[in-house]
Amino acid sequence: MTPLLSVRALRKSYGALRVTDDVSLDVAAGELHAVIGPNGAGKTTLIHQLSGSLRSDSGTVHLAGEDITALPMVARVRRGLARSFQITSILDGFSVLENVALAVQARSGSSFRFFRPAATETRLNAEAMDALGRVGLADRAARRAGSLSHGEKRQLELAVALATKARLLLLDEPLAGTGPEESAILVGLMRELKSTHTIVLIEHDMEAVFALADRMSVLVYGRVIASGAPAAVRSDPAVRAAYLGEEEAA
């Protein structure tokens, strides 16, 4: 069976610095694949390359067998690849519901409609409410998005990604900057999303990664030094030397 996401020999350099160096990985449909690595390992660059906001120097990216290497972000989203941002990126001035309804609108029907008030489109709002319900923000729907707590904003990001009806979610450090309680909510949420979505999770929080991942890849200086089931990766000597050991020592 073709993997949902297949990355082959992906490279990206800034001058002499190889930020992504010959990265290959496969993500099967239905699995949660975590990408971990120390700071500066090139995780966010990889997400940018996968989501299409950054062009790769060489290598290929296939989504469900289709070569999407040359496609810009907008076209990749339309093929079912959605991302969340490490630094929260929502529309602060919009209501929580409108943030999500906009994502629903983007994939259902033309947005070149000029007269009907979008806020009264019950179908958009109903689908948006579904997504908000899944991330546990239904009771916040009418609030201004900018007034949400940090953790709630991260939940809203997930709701927006869900609303795009993505097949594959690229989550860029969804736990960044969250406290322990918010973290627990988000981890529970991702466990729930796992049942319906294929996920590539970039995350710093090791506890969360080992709790969630079906498979994982370890990125160090732009290279994948190990890939496989969490237990195997955890005991890999190269990984222990490069990364986990450093954590334990800290």
Binding site: V77, L102, S111, F112, F114, F115, P117, A118, T164
Partner: peptide
């Protein structure tokens, strides 16, 4: 007033506030 509240206006306002966010939901 109708235009800015319409689907079109919503996309326009969203693009004003955060163009990258718009691309991330598939809207150029």
């Amino acid at each position: 007033r109708r235009v800015v509240a319409s689907r079109f206006g919503r996309v326009l306002r969203g693009s004003r506030d955060n163009a990258v966010r718009m691309q991330a939901i598939g809207v150029s």
